[in-house]
Design a binder for these strands. Sequence first.
DNA 1: GCTTTCGCTTGATATTTATCAAGATGCTTT
DNA 2: AAAGCATCTTGATAAATATCAAGCGAAAGC
Lengths: 192, 192
Amino acid sequence: MFITFKKYISEKTVLSDRDWAIIKPLCIIKKLRKQQYLLQEGEIWKYHAFVCEGCLRRYSIDEKGIEHIIQFVIENWWAGDRESLANETPSRYNIDAIENSAVLLIRKDNFDIICKKIPEFNELMNTILQRSLNASQLRIEAAISFTAEEKYLHFIKSFPNIANRVPRRMLASYLSITPETLSKIKNQITKK
Amino acid sequence: MFITFKKYISEKTVLSDRDWAIIKPLCIIKKLRKQQYLLQEGEIWKYHAFVCEGCLRRYSIDEKGIEHIIQFVIENWWAGDRESLANETPSRYNIDAIENSAVLLIRKDNFDIICKKIPEFNELMNTILQRSLNASQLRIEAAISFTAEEKYLHFIKSFPNIANRVPRRMLASYLSITPETLSKIKNQITKK
DNA sequence: GCTTTCGCTTGATATTTATCAAGATGCTTT
DNA sequence: AAAGCATCTTGATAAATATCAAGCGAAAGC
């Protein structure tokens, strides 16, 4: 598990063995069974979380009890609730595992220590934050610009590796359409 | 104009006169007339831009020629296209002024110099990046969870100061509904 | 001051998407 | 292998939203 993380970081920046000696003891590996929560609404999120293996989803639940999936997170991406983490406020999100998964956790305080001691790490994390923002912007654009069919086509084009791993109804939730509509759209497309 | 920026920063962190002596010469004030572009699709964005006064919008244009407003930016917020800035790729967005506006620009290279020389500034900018991400997340949630009416009510509650400054049709674009629908919704609400 | 233009509203109609209900498929568990 | 449960599909109907067209009113230009 840890090796996945090390590989991920090493592809983006160069850290010394000494750096890794700082990082490694502060990492916690957590295995999640399918359906298991990583974070539940109302909790205060305290970690930076890197997904080594598996697939998670982050979602909110509205007053009608309907789940709205904000994000899927697969291996080599970061999970968690940055807002709750930064402001120390109760999270409005749930995060749970869609597949059996393994997550690498670093407590916020330890994470900050690493960032202070290792400027390259700090820099990389800012780059990643920047990328998250870019991804969010694309998601906003898709959500406000596309029809149901366009949203689906855009998604399978952008994330083919996620599309075939998540249940259809969850994909529908992510795309903000009903499972029935998604089913019909898929049907129409294959006819063409 | 510059004083607005100084006040904004000073509310969030403490910088010395020496720090300001570094920053000030690197700032460019740009005045924009209503309708004037700050950034046009295809250009590579090179600045960090702080809005001192006025109101801008950032939007993309789809293949059908329809504008989709991603964001409104008023005084004391940051504008620009971070993706284009970070990756040095042509921007997919347009940014123009809805009102006569004044923007403070800092070239990327100069901005990086400031960040290096003034750690407090650097830290603050990361916090702001973090906040932008939070704002994006909320926008995603609103876009995928709400009906047209809910989106409108949520917007005027969240941004009352923007709601009454932007033309109705632009608000409709932001909310991803037609101006006609917005008009009818407003009507229904006042009836209640 | 008059005209022109643009944005907003309103109503009629069309399209898209949601809802509801039933049946089909496939997985899991025993 | 059978039973039970989930999910996905399909069709009929309903609701939400878009489109189109016309009229109103206020701001901008002459």
